[in-house]
Simulated scan of single mutants.
Amino acid sequence: MVKESTVDVILHPVRMRIIQSLINQQMTAQQLKELLPDIPQASMYRHLKKLVEAGVIHIIEEIPNRGTIEKVYSLQDPANATISVEKLSSFTKDEHMNLFFRFMANIMGEYERYLNEDNIDLVRDGVSFRQTSLFLDDTEFAQFIKELSEIYTRVTQNKPEKGRRRRTVATIIIPDRKHEEQ
């Protein structure tokens, strides 16, 4: 059997949802199953096992429960759930396209799950997608990325609690082709 690369482990749509669910919290398989009810129990356990074997998530506690051991999972180091700059730099054009396609497929899956819910209200729920062009020199772009990163860092520290709703936010930055100085 061929071992999956860490990139393949991370980018699987179900495993990506599990990883995102474990950001800033620790959960058992049962808690994950309640949060992600569309994932069959057997699949949940199979994907958790792959994530643990790849070192993406960790078992931080084992609790005896009615004759079995209930494991508590954690994403202890979010860097383990990302693709390194070195790895990205080594990808071919086709590998980058495959990576981008899988990223988009994950986003489409999230949106489809939302649309399949009862009583959705796009305005109330804050659904939005847009595209715009920004004209920034390298210094302005660096400042934009710094400020955006600061906002992301601040809000990704929020833990789930009453009144908070999980929202998926995706950012894609695609530069225009290089132009000669005007």
Results as ranks from 00 to 15, higher is better:
V2R: 09
K3M: 09
E4I: 05
V7Y: 10
V9R: 08
I10P: 00
I10M: 11
H12M: 05
M16F: 08
N24I: 01
T28L: 02
T28W: 07
Q30N: 10
L32D: 06
L36R: 00
P37A: 10
D38S: 12
D38P: 03
I39E: 01
Q41I: 08
S43A: 05
S43N: 04
M44N: 03
M44Q: 06
R46H: 04
L48V: 11
L48K: 07
K49Q: 13
K49C: 03
V52A: 11
V56W: 08
I57H: 07
H58Q: 15
I60Y: 00
I60H: 02
I63V: 14
P64W: 10
T68G: 02
E70M: 12
E70K: 14
V72G: 04
V72C: 04
S74W: 02
L75G: 06
Q76T: 11
D77Q: 14
P78E: 10
N80H: 11
N80P: 06
I83R: 01
V85T: 05
K87R: 15
L88S: 12
L88P: 12
L88K: 15
S89W: 01
S89Q: 10
S89D: 13
S90D: 06
F91M: 15
K93Y: 12
H96L: 12
F101M: 04
F103C: 08
A105C: 10
N106Y: 15
I107N: 09
E110P: 00
E112R: 09
E117L: 08
D118T: 15
D121F: 08
G126N: 09
R130C: 08
S133I: 14
L134A: 02
L136D: 00
D137C: 01
D137N: 07
D137Q: 01
E140H: 01
F141Q: 01
A142H: 00
Q143I: 00
F144I: 01
F144T: 00
L148A: 11
S149E: 07
I151V: 11
Y152M: 15
Y152S: 14
K159C: 05
K159H: 13
P160N: 04
K162T: 07
G163A: 09
R165A: 08
V169E: 10
T171A: 04
I172C: 08
I174D: 04
P175G: 06
D176K: 15
R177E: 10
E180W: 09
E180P: 01
E180Y: 09
E181P: 01
